[in-house]
Computed example of a mutant assay.
Amino acid sequence: MRIYFTFEPRPDLREPLLAEFPQVEFIFEKSLSNEELQQADVLVTYGEDLTEESIQYATKLKWIFVASAGIEKMPAQAIIERGILVSNVRGIHKTPMAESMLAHILAIKRALPWMYEQQKKSEWSKKAQQTELRDSTALILGPGAIGSEVGRLLQAFGVTTIGCNRSGKEAAYMNTMISFAQLKEALPQADIVISVLPKTTETTHLLEEEHFAAMKNNAIFMNFGRGNLVDEKVLIQAIETKQIGHAVLDVFEEEPLTSDNPLWTLPNVIVSPHVSSHSSRYVERSLEIFKPSLTKWLKGDTDLENVMDLSRGY
């Protein structure tokens, strides 16, 4: 069996993989090669390098392991037509992303950005507008692995959590649950609104003008899912008209954000360039998911962890 990685794990991660699976021929490269793709039985990729054209070269390919949670940049239809199984690392991001979200929330609540600006100006001032996180309410759109982890951390700080998904079905570390249909009615309760929703047809522009109008004017809005959640013009208007207090954005409709985009300079906006999931342990955690799945695959078992339904987008 030939397994083709389109990235190179560090030697301390690669060597144990080779030792654990001596019967497998591993190919490690820093980019996608159609020549190697022609010979691969299994592909391990971040997903962004695959195209409809390259899939045509993958005549032997039976399984794609995506070392990423999102698949929106992959040629889904071409993969479906070929009957290739796809699995990913869903859940791998929960620790770094939840820590990133909590860091931003605490920084805003305790006025850290203001303090940093005062330090730059060498100004001693005690006029910081600091508030407490305790006794706040957070509404979390998409309480899956990531949303539930941030819910767990927020509950430890004495925050009430409201989870919101398509069905309203119960999720971990949520005090209450609502469906998308109940979202507008629940927004006035929230001090913090966090989205970690995937990109699907249903989530595209899920938040509209009426939703921002329903939020508290001092609410913190955070988008750490996908940029399709809200039309950028609607978001900018909500910030400019002070319908919300702060926006922390890790994802955008168009990435990278252009240098002339007003989000860079609007007050009370934090631009995080899609880095909240980054961690020095990323590949390590990816391989922790890949290895048990590979063990199953070698035995002919296709019931792998995190098998994806490409037709639904997750």
Rank of each mutant, 00 (worst) to 15 (best):
Met1Pro: 07
Phe5Tyr: 15
Phe7His: 13
Phe7Lys: 07
Arg10Met: 13
Pro16Trp: 03
Leu18Asp: 05
Glu20Thr: 07
Glu25Tyr: 04
Glu25Trp: 03
Glu29Ser: 15
Ser33Glu: 12
Gln38Ala: 13
Ala40Leu: 04
Asp41Glu: 11
Ile55Lys: 01
Lys62Asp: 06
Trp63Val: 07
Gly70Leu: 01
Glu72Trp: 01
Pro75Cys: 14
Ala78Lys: 13
Ile79Ala: 07
Ile79Tyr: 06
Gly83Asp: 09
Gly83Tyr: 10
Val86Ser: 09
Asn88Tyr: 07
Gly91Thr: 01
Ile92Asn: 09
Lys94Glu: 11
Lys94His: 07
Met97Ile: 15
Ala111Pro: 03
Pro113His: 08
Glu117Gly: 03
Gln119Cys: 01
Lys120Leu: 12
Glu123Lys: 15
Ser125Phe: 02
Gln129Ile: 05
Thr131Glu: 08
Thr131Trp: 02
Leu133Asn: 04
Thr137Cys: 13
Ala138Cys: 13
Ile140Val: 15
Ser148Trp: 01
Gly158Arg: 02
Thr160Cys: 09
Thr161Ile: 15
Gly163His: 00
Ser167Glu: 09
Lys169Met: 06
Asn175Ser: 08
Met177Tyr: 02
Met177Cys: 01
Ile178Pro: 00
Ser179Asp: 10
Ser179Ala: 15
Phe180Gly: 01
Leu183Gly: 00
Ser195Leu: 00
Val196Pro: 00
Thr201Val: 07
Leu207Thr: 04
Glu209Val: 14
Met215Arg: 00
Met215Glu: 05
Lys216Leu: 07
Asn218Trp: 02
Phe221Ala: 03
Arg226Gln: 04
Asn228Val: 12
Ile236Phe: 04
Ile239Asn: 02
Thr241Leu: 11
Lys242Trp: 06
Gln243Phe: 03
Ile244Arg: 08
Ile244Leu: 09
Ala247Val: 08
Asp250Cys: 10
Glu254Ser: 10
Glu255Asp: 07
Ser259Met: 05
Trp264Gly: 08
Leu266Ser: 11
Leu266Cys: 08
Pro267Val: 09
Asn268Met: 11
Val269Phe: 13
Val269Asn: 10
Val269Pro: 08
Val271Phe: 06
His274Asn: 06
His274Leu: 02
Val275Phe: 06
Ser276Asn: 07
Ser277Cys: 06
Arg281Pro: 00
Ser286Asp: 10
Ser286Leu: 03
Leu287Phe: 10
Phe290Ala: 06
Lys291Pro: 02
Pro292Glu: 06
Leu298Phe: 09
Glu305Pro: 05
Met308Ser: 09
Ser311Lys: 15
